[in-house]
Amino acid sequence: MARRILPGLPLTLGITLVYVAVIVVLPLGALIFKAASLGPGDYWTIISSDRAVASYRVTLLCAAAATAFNLVFGMALAWVIVRYRFPGRRIVDALVDLPFALPTAVAGIALTTLFASNGWFGSALSTLGLKVAYTPLGIIIAMAFTSLPFIVRTVQPVLEELDGALEEAAQTLGASDSEIFAKVLLPQLFPAILAGLSLSFARSLGEFGAIIFIAGNQPYETEITALLAFIRLEEYDYPASAAIASVMLMAAFLMLAITNILQTRALRYTVKG
């Protein structure tokens, strides 16, 4: 009988369940329990207030814009890292993970310094009539910075494993570069792209530290939902904070459910193809 390197199923499953219960289930359960302490009327009044709705709008629109930017730039960055060899390639590859290693508050301060009206980038953009810091554009930049690695790191390994013979065969049949990408590469990359988009969007929804420094935090204009929940927490209004946070929790679960459905369909289409 071959020796097992890893422990058996009962032990590993038990450790996994305990970890999930302590790290995931208990915090989410406490959040739901606190939000449930409100009556239906009070709960609806809190989550449908003008300020809360404005924060949802700012958060969702900025997260969508940041994710759309990351889709284009992240795909291009992953493509360059995988398909080309150039001086400094390893440095660029390592810098992709910088938002993971850098504390988000430090990232927020750095972005604010760069994009303020007297900053390196902000002063140049000011001459063009563009203001970044303390505007929704600043929120988008902060979200894009912190969530970019999710797109790159989900697409990059799939690109590395693609069979180059398929592209060569398409070229010999007279397909153009755009046709090869759309009909040969994109179907294989689509599940990974969906995974990266969902992770990037979820990270943008929950981002806090990098945003509060560059956003300006003006109610109805640049106030994100995470900040509004934090404000209610500082006011010791724990049920209201939990209620606002529960809305974003439900939005995240809904987004993940839709993404999983789309991924399953994309995988089935790829296998049939």
Rank of each mutant, 00 (worst) to 15 (best):
I46A: 14
I47N: 05
S49P: 08
S49F: 08
R51T: 12
A54F: 09
V58F: 05
L61T: 09
A63R: 06
A64F: 13
A65Q: 13
N70F: 04
F73I: 14
L77M: 05
L77W: 03
A78E: 04
I81Y: 09
V82Y: 02
V82M: 06
R85D: 15
R85P: 11
F86K: 09
P87L: 15
I91A: 14
I91V: 15
L95C: 12
V96N: 02
V96C: 03
P99Y: 06
L102C: 14
L102E: 04
P103Y: 04
T104Y: 01
T104R: 02
V106E: 04
V106C: 07
A107R: 06
G108W: 01
A110R: 04
L111D: 01
T112N: 09
T112H: 10
F115I: 01
A116V: 03
S117E: 14
S117L: 13
N118P: 05
N118C: 05
W120V: 11
W120F: 15
F121P: 00
S123K: 04
S123I: 00
L125G: 00
T127I: 10
L128D: 02
G129E: 01
L130F: 11
K131F: 10
K131H: 12
K131E: 13
V132L: 00
V132M: 00
V132Y: 00
Y134T: 06
Y134D: 09
Y134W: 11
L137N: 00
G138W: 02
I139C: 06
I140L: 10
I140P: 07
I141A: 01
A142T: 07
A142C: 07
M143G: 09
M143H: 10
T146L: 13
L148D: 05
P149L: 03
F150R: 06
I151F: 03
V152I: 15
V155N: 09
Q156L: 14
P157A: 12
P157N: 08
V158P: 10
V158I: 14
V158C: 10
E160T: 13
D163L: 06
D163K: 08
E167P: 09
E168K: 07
